[in-house]
């Protein structure tokens, strides 16, 4: 009896090993829970092509958009955990939405096997070029002296821009008015045109900074950003607790064999270290992820907790 169990176990582990060795033997589907174009889709497309070359099998991107990423993420959670369906995880559906939606359709922690963090992009405090402010301190001082006077833009309720500004408000006690737009594009247009006073925006605003249409004062990450080494962090300026980085990472449905997860983790990490990838990511203001699948899981859990506090304190509820 015991012998036969051992045999079965041995056989099973052999199967697992064989699976990982022959993996991938057919095309891999990568679910992007957002429409084509935009940050998450771009992140998936940036890594999919070179990763597919490394794995020797094509990676097919499937856009399953809707409900701020919830629909596609819920679909990915239900897929077979055989390594042939992956998910491009990101900040909103995987760490923020669980606090805002009552009918998520997935469990952000238990339904997924985190594979690897691809990269993070921090937020930057930016103002229009014509703005009278010349530093983060000037913006904050003015906002303190004139409560409810300044407007800030965001790409929507619960967006990284919105949450980062809430962190800034909590840290400094300023009172500023939120003007929500339908997406980053319209929000940035309004900022460039001076219709709102400032925004804590992701690096999508870099081209405007380079063209001299926006001024950048601070970055919301623990370290300075390699793309903008002259921009101080909020921490350096004495404004603590403003840390918002949008993350993009590869995930798989829960119970995907560890061998497959580790293989993908290794390949992605190696890819991220290539010269070509490094230059491309730096240009985008992105910081390449490193570390094991376990590191990514820990990162995810701490992000989920951190945003839970912010969302609750701001009282955001979609449904």
């Amino acid at each position: 009896m015991i012998k036969s169990i051992t045999i079965v176990v041995a056989a099973m582990s052999c199967v697992g090993l064989a699976m990982a060795q022959s993996y991938p033997s057919r095309p891999i589907k990568l679910i992007v829970p957002w429409p084509p174009g935009g940050g998450v889709d771009t992140s998936a497309r940036i890594i999919a092509q070179p990763l597919a070359e490394r794995l020797g099998q094509p990676i097919v991107i499937e856009n399953k958009a809707g409900a701020a990423g919830n629909i596609g993420t819920a679909v990915a959670a239900q897929e077979k955990p055989d390594g042939y369906t992956l998910l491009m995880g990101s900040l909103s559906p995987n760490a923020v939405n669980p606090h805002m939606y009552s009918n998520l359709g997935f469990d952000p922690v238990n339904d997924f096997e985190p594979i690897a963090l691809a990269y993070t992009v921090p937020c930057f405090l930016v103002v229009p070029a014509a703005s009278p402010f010349n530093s983060a301190k000037e913006v904050i001082d003015y906002a303190k002296a004139n409560p409810g006077k300044l407007n800030y833009g965001s790409s929507g309720i619960g967006s990284s821009q919105h949450l980062a500004t809430i962190m800034l408000q909590k840290s400094t006690g300023i009172d500023v008015v939120h003007v929500s737009y339908k997406g980053t594009g319209p929000a940035e247009t309004a900022l460039v045109a001076g219709q709102v006073d400032f925004m804590v925006d992701n690096p999508a605003s870099f081209p405007f900074i380079e063209a001299g249409r926006l001024k950048v004062f601070a970055v919301g990450s623990p370290e300075r950003n390699p793309a903008k080494p002259d921009v101080p962090t909020f921490d350096e300026l004495g404004v603590t607790g403003v840390h918002t980085s949008v993350f993009y990472g590869l995930m798989a449905p829960a119970k995907t064999p560890k061998e497959i997860v580790d293989r993908l983790n290794k390949e992605l990490n190696e890819l991220l270290q290539t010269e070509e990838m490094r230059t491309r990511l730096t240009k985008m203001g992105a910081v390449a992820g490193t570390g094991s699948a376990e590191d990514f899981r820990k990162y995810l859990i701490s992000e989920i907790e951190r945003y839970g506090v912010i969302v609750k304190s701001a009282g955001i509820k979609i449904e």
């Binding site: 805002m100 929507g156 309720i157 619960g158 929500s180 737009y181 339908k182 955001i316 509820k317 979609i318 449904e319």
Partner: peptide, 8 residues
């Protein structure tokens, strides 16, 4: 979703 309040 209402853009201003985020309510569905």
């Amino acid at each position: 979703t209402d853009v201003t309040t985020g309510v569905a």
